[in-house]
Amino acid sequence: MTTLLECGPLSAKDGEGRTLFHGARLTLDEGRLALLEGPSGSGKSTLLRQVAALLEAPGASRRLEGEEYGPGRLARWRARVTLAAQDAPVLPGTVAWNLEFPFAFRHARRNECDPAAQRAALDGVGLERLPLDRDVATLSGGERHRLALARALLWDPPVLLADEPLAGLDPDRAALCFERLAEHAHRAGRAVLCVLHEGVMGFSGDRRLRLVDSRLEEA
């Protein structure tokens, strides 16, 4: 098994100064779906945001396929180790705009994102009936979450960090979306680390990590 991503040591405190986790090291293997668990408030989102380099992680090194991404290369890193953030943020505008905007960035790994691919990505998460020109302001919470997941899958990063991607979905749709995540993870050169929301049952990955007592460990 090949190690795809190595990141650490990661440490963080919460707003009151209590340690969330200390000296955590994360490794993700190619072709694997890992689930990250832990009680609410244990710092799962913070950990994901640090891995994605959206939060500072002093002293941490970030490696993808053995290649170090240090200062000055973090935008490149995020294009490859992409966070699908909690609450499924969207940009004002159409569904199509929300799917294609990253492909115009300088560090995009490819610049084409044709409507057929966009359509297929939406169909894959059960949004067959959602037109590409719909204004995202009119989407329901569940539709928004699936749109955000479709965007992440279309973007096709080597490592996808998904923070509660199934929130607000009914069981059937949640199962469909989880299947898409697993498919993505199981491809060559890919890996997924996924945090599931509180109370969601019946999903298992290839590996379970737990954030408990300020340590990151195998569950």
Binding site: A52, A75, R78, A79, A85, P89, L91, F105, H107
Partner: peptide
């Protein structure tokens, strides 16, 4: 929204 762009590799 700003962080969404950053998360997908925006400079």
């Amino acid at each position: 929204e700003v962080e969404l762009r950053l998360a997908f590799g925006a400079t």
